[in-house]
Amino acid sequence: MKRWLPHPLLTPVLAIVWLLLNNSLALGQILLGLLLGWAIPCFTLAFWPERVRFYSPRAALRFAAVFLYDVVIANIAVARLILAGPRVLRPCFVNVPLDLTDDLAISLLANTICLTPGTVSARLSADRRTLLVHALDCADPEALVAEIKQRFEVPLKEMLEC
């Protein structure tokens, strides 16, 4: 099993991407997509040896819903801040201590932070314990850290590290 299907999640994802790229649902394309989805992970196995595992698919779905909602809200907030002009902004750098240890979880958290609440993740410390975050408009750094941890880190931990 491990040898013949090294990344069980990647196969359907690649097949779906292939179908979207061709914009069709013909049987031949589905077969070709599945074949590619099987072959590409086999050939690129050397680049990512460890398997991605979702411990809780329900947490993943919930996280995706929260994420999409937050993207829209944050975008409107950022648009409003830009229109209000540079004078009202209170930018600051905040260090977020991380509880996550898994590489994928950390990169997902960094990406989520970039896309959501008026923040950009700027740098991960070399020991992978703190993430430096730049906030566009932040009155209370403590509250921002608490919000990031509670809103994104807890579900990610539940989802990927059990």
Binding site: P86, P91, V120
Partner: peptide, 25 residues
């Protein structure tokens, strides 16, 4: 608005927010 942020804001770190967020949406 994303591009407007690129011109209007004062330092690089705040300018970064406009294109990454507003433009993506």
């Amino acid at each position: 608005i994303g591009s407007l942020g690129l011109v209007r804001l004062r330092d690089f770190y705040t300018r970064l927010h406009g294109p990454t967020k507003a433009t993506t949406l």
